[in-house]
Design a protein around this nucleic acid. Structure first.
Length: 575
RNA sequence: CGGGGCGUAGCGCAGCCUGGUAGCGUACCUGCAUGGGGUGCAGGUGGUCGCGAGUUCAAAUCUCGCCGCCCCGACCA
């Protein structure tokens, strides 16, 4: 391909609409253009990247034994009513009527259609297992689309659905897909992590998310560098330090802390680390009457820790935060100075595991303007905390739940998700087959998604510098660019460039010849911006010495490349 | 959906408060020069000022309504 006849649509200035790096660079490099909120045109350069991602995904899915098909984007409402998702999905499901006033949806995923297909085609266990997948446009009417194609409304997804005669076979395919996804993201050249995810109402162990690691990711992941352990921070078990609780050393004292209601402020005021403080969060159980004993609950957390509402709900049941009036009524103290010492026995106290290990800590005195220091279990509080549980988000430095090291926290972008659906859809839609004994049974199902358009954004989010995109070679729109200086003036340069271009093409290299009549600075800037991994510069000066010049996109400086062996050494770099 | 902000040339912006019929940079076109990191000079093309009403002799500017877009939050996964 030649830049003179290709569509290079780079922009010097950053469009005001874009906030995050990948979105800005995709607009500036001319990969996409916005048409409407969350809806984008993919320009020729962007399509090249998209196709490379798709190709790797397709090759690996095929290798794993999955079969590609294409299901309709427009789907009749009846199937969605049958599965229950017509009611359950909410406004993210785009619905419309045709001229006959019949309801349709634009698919956000295709469980219904594929399950419908399975129940009419897979009547016997002899046809199982089967794994169908497609790579195709999806639509989710996001409440707030943002970050360009990272969270768009219309996007391309690879969605696969597998059907099995029993759970053991579903588990086998699930592992197969876990391996396949690992191969896919490795081949794409991305740094990623498979993360245990919430299985929600369906339960079981069967859900993993694949995250591309990037500072700007929307999700926080806790992982253990010494092992395979990785989980969404909200789900990761937070363990207390292994060391036993130290005996009390300090006397309990009441100290003035005027105006200091936050743990950080109290700690700074008392010149102690915030890790020595304990905060009390007052909540009210909604599962029992407000008047009942134990309906009012104090949750104790170390001052720098964060309450995890999902975990807490699993421990104490449904709850809401107590209002300021309720706090005053129950503790006769205003929020900010409340604590667990000498409170009514009708109030339940739950301590996070870490708090249960603390000694000589600081907490509210239940008197406005005062905190207590040197507070200890057994002496100032009930012997030991009666209720100890995991109530907080995991933080960096926590012991790994698998006991093999210490957790680190990184941010990630979810680009893949594998899930054991079990019989949710097959039961709802009466999708059954006959087993070997002639009995009718619902399919065990799995589903597996990769956000293809999001992979492109995530790859850029993870790989860029001040000059632009640094594409991982497997997804770069072109592998090599040949940049002749003086192409339109020097016959020697032109001849060498054309020769190199032709020879690389003949060797199957995806090469871009930069033959526009622009100043060298413009050419360099554009090639850097669009992130071509390998650059070869040809000039009269270099040719006189028999040299071309090579520079990798991440290199600081170019190096000489003897023209005679240029092709072979480039092929070596590409291998 | 709640809060905030913005709609003026492909892109980035000024002009609006104080009404007089639109400007800067960049991009684009032409010419000359230049030719190793977004070059210089000169000349040019391009805008129903988001849409609709109203006030006024006169509206990008004031008033009302609508639409679109962005950010934060909530929601969703």
């Amino acid at each position: 391909m030649r830049t003179s006849t290709f569509f290079i649509a780079t922009q010097k200035e950053v469009p005001a609409e874009a906030e995050i790096v990948s979105h800005r660079l995709m607009l500036r490099a001319g990969l996409i253009r916005r048409l409407s909120a969350g809806i984008y045109t993919w320009l020729p350069l962007g399509v090249r990247v998209l196709r490379k991602v798709e190709r790797i995904v397709r090759e690996e899915m095929n290798r794993a034994g999955a079969l590609e098909l294409v299901m309709p984007v427009v789907q009749p409402a009846e199937l969605w009513q049958e599965s229950g998702r017509w009611q359950a999905y909410g406004p993210e499901l785009l619905r419309f009527r045709d001229r006959h006033e019949r309801d349709f949806v634009i698919q956000p995923t295709s469980e219904e259609v594929v399950t419908d297909l399975a129940r009419s085609e897979l009547k016997s266990y002899r046809r199982l297992p089967v794994h169908f997948y497609q790579i195709q446009t999806k639509l989710r009417d996001e409440r707030r689309p943002r970050f360009g194609v990272m969270r768009g409304r219309e996007f391309v997804m690879k969605d696969g659905y597998s059907f099995h005669a029993d759970y053991a076979d579903l588990e086998r395919e699930y592992r197969n897909m876990h391996d396949t996804y690992t191969r896919i993201f490795t081949r794409l050249g991305l740094r990623f992590r498979a993360v245990a995810a919430d299985t929600g109402a369906i339960g079981g162990t069967g859900s993993h998310e694949f995250h591309v690691l990037a500072e700007s990711g929307e999700d926080a992941i806790a992982f253990c560098p010494q092992s395979d352990y990785a989980a969404n921070v909200e789900l990761a078990e937070a363990l207390a330090p292994k060391a036993a609780r130290k005996p009390p050393l300090e006397e309990r004292k009441k100290v003035q802390t005027p105006g200091k209601t936050k743990c950080e402020d109290v700690a700074a005021f008392l010149h102690i680390p915030v890790q020595r403080t304990v905060k009390a969060v007052a909540v009210v159980r909604t599962s029992i009457p407000y008047e009942s004993i134990g309906s009012f609950v104090l949750l104790l957390l170390r001052g720098d820790h964060e309450l995890n509402e999902i975990k807490t709900q699993k421990v104490i049941g449904a709850f809401r935060f107590a209002s300021e009036a309720e706090v005053e009524e129950r503790l006769r103290c205003r929020a900010g100075y409340i604590g667990p010492v000498d409170i009514s026995a009708t109030i339940a106290v739950y301590a996070d595991r870490t708090v249960a290990q603390m000694s000589d800590f600081v907490c509210g005195a239940n008197e406005p303007g005062y905190h207590l220091t040197g507070v200890n279990w057994g002496r100032d509080l009930r012997d030991d905390p009666a209720n100890v549980a995991d109530l907080r988000n995991a933080v960096a430095g926590d012991p790994s739940p698998d006991g093999k090291g210490v957790l680190e926290i990184v941010r990630g972008i979810e680009v893949g998700h594998i899930f054991q659906l079990r019989t949710k859809y097959s039961t709802a839609m009466k999708a059954t087959f006959l087993d070997a004994a002639g009995a009718e049974r619902p399919f065990e199902m799995g589903c597996y998604g990769i956000g293809v358009t999001r992979v492109v954004a995530a790859a850029i989010e993870q790989n860029h510098d001040e000059r632009g995109i640094v594409f991982p070679p497997p997804v770069a729109p072109f592998e090599v660019c040949v940049v002749p200086i003086g192409y339109h003036k020097s016959p020697a340069v032109r001849e060498a460039a054309e020769g190199l271009y032709r020879e690389l093409q003949e060797n199957g290299v995806d090469v871009l010849l930069e033959d526009r009549e622009e100043r060298p600075g413009v050419l360099f800037a554009d090639m850097d911006l669009i992130g071509i991994p390998h650059r070869v510069v040809l000039s009269e000066r270099g040719l006189a010495a028999g040299n071309a010049e090579y520079k990798g996109r991440r290199d600081d400086k170019p190096s000489d490349l003897p023209l005679a062996s240029a092709v072979s050494s480039l092929l070596k770099k590409l291998a």
